[in-house]
Design a protein around this nucleic acid. Structure first.
Lengths: 203, 203
DNA sequence: ACATTTGTTAACCGAATGGTTAAACTAAAT
DNA sequence: ATTTAGTTTAACCATTCGGTTAACAAATGT
């Protein structure tokens, strides 16, 4: 029998675990809950992934593996800076709208286990910003954009892109927007963020 | 006998719980661990705060109570917009440098329990941005700053201010900065963030 | 047809954890 | 000195949770 996507228990587990872990975090999640979500017996979780820790790492790596290459690819492209920033924010915001739990999950778990970054850094797709930095420094040197530290600019780009997703309950509270209006605001950011950044650095 | 600050068990517990909860979150934290940190017996925790849930809520409200009024006060001051933004980012970044775990804690717990925002919103010190919005809209109307949606601007300010603290392990990885260099970058943001924002909105 | 491997389950286990209890200690009030 | 109210502790309890076992079922190979 050929395994169809629907019956592939291993993938079902990963999908279920992703949902539960992303909603409740490593400690809040219960193996039983994941088993229920996957529609299987709890022992099967241990059959496929030996322990909660290993299951968690599998989910984490999949999540991070979705986020990182996207950034990396654009950062190292040979686009002009302005186009690059537009592409970076537009693509990334679109991507996160489809996977809204992803950044929260990655960032929270990296906070409770900072040393894990050291492992991630060695992996092939981990974003490298040296090309981007050189590009920014050259433009500053040539007087084509306002003077700005490249690391700061990079941090700004990610902040403006990702934070509204991580802090959405808080920001919904502050702005008094309902879900629909807040989603509209996020949608608008596909354009608004790059406009804002480019205004900030161009003369 | 007058209770001194050092021996006030109730406050000791809150302080210990703050440390543990902020490092491990609601689920990761153990009552025994909090008791150890406070140098007391586990049963005392339940004597002063009836349950883990109530202890957690006490810590959370204290944490939020430190963050919110600061924002609120400045937002509703009658400073000129440019000065207000400078004050907002400078003060807030300084504040978070002193309490680096705070935003992570608040945001993560609000994510696992979004309905709690509804409770917070009703409290007196919860930030209200209507004054700020009117101010921005008026300046746009008069053509004194570039056209920008006030909610978006507010979201941008908070993103640029808070995100580098929440995502510090990740950003340290991306930028390849060590702890000292990253702290320097955060320190620099006291000025850099407001410059960036003001550049983005002024003609 | 039979044997072997792979997938799945119900029942169970030990450790950890949040919470309780009842007794002991302390210090001020009577 | 005795009472009283507040504080602290050790021991204990019930439940939850991650993980294991052993038996069974379904697929696969020979």
């Amino acid at each position: 029998m050929v395994k169809t996507k629907d019956n592939n228990t291993e993938d079902n587990i990963l999908e279920a675990a992703k949902n539960i872990f992303q909603r409740k975090g490593m400690f809040g999640a219960r193996m039983q809950e994941i088993a229920n979500e996957a529609g299987i017996n709890k022992a099967l979780l241990h059959y496929y992934y030996r322990s909660k820790q290993l299951l968690f790492e599998a989910v984490f790596k999949q999540a991070f593996g979705l986020m990182a290459p996207k950034i990396n690819e654009i950062l190292n492209s040979d686009l002009e800076l302005e186009t690059k920033i537009k592409s970076l924010t537009h693509n990334y915001i679109s991507f996160v709208i489809k996977h809204p739990y992803l950044p929260t999950f990655v960032i929270h778990e990296l906070n409770s286990n900072p040393d894990f970054v050291k492992v991630l850094i060695t992996e092939k797709n981990f974003p490298n910003i040296t090309v981007f930095k050189k590009q920014v420094e050259a433009l500053v040197e040539e007087g084509k954009i306002k003077s700005i530290n490249a690391d700061q600019l990079f941090v700004n780009i990610l902040s403006l892109t990702i934070f509204p997703f991580i802090a959405s309950p808080l920001l919904k509270g502050f702005t008094r927007l309902d879900d629909a209006a807040y989603n509209k605001l996020l949608e608008d950011r596909k354009e608004a963020v790059s406009d804002f950044i480019i205004n900030a650095i161009k003369f």
